[in-house]
């Protein structure tokens, strides 16, 4: 699985990245986590609020930081 975190580096984006990393290691999920910081790349996902969470090229959440439980649910769909 490929997880992308879209964000220009604001505190919320960092929180999201940390949460995703924690969920992935805690549950032994086989995933590659990529931080997308370039604004042009971020805009290619057509989101209007950061941070964005992308799983296998599908935008799961945008503009908010989901809880670890929600991230876990999103990753194990």
């Amino acid at each position: 699985m490929e997880i992308k975190i879209l964000g220009t580096g604001c505190p919320n984006c960092k929180t999201l990245e940390n949460r995703v990393r924690r969920v992935v290691t805690q549950n032994n999920i086989d995933a590659r986590i990529i931080k997308v910081e370039d604004i042009m790349d971020i805009m290619s996902y057509n989101i209007m609020a950061t941070p964005g969470l992308v799983v296998n090229e599908k935008v799961m959440t945008k503009g908010r930081v989901p809880s670890e439980r929600e991230i876990h649910e999103l990753l194990t769909l």
Partner: peptide
């Protein structure tokens, strides 16, 4: 509003 969202907002609009 979060100032870090101003750019995506701008482009989206």
């Amino acid at each position: 509003f979060c100032s870090c969202s101003s750019v995506p907002l701008f482009i989206g609009f």
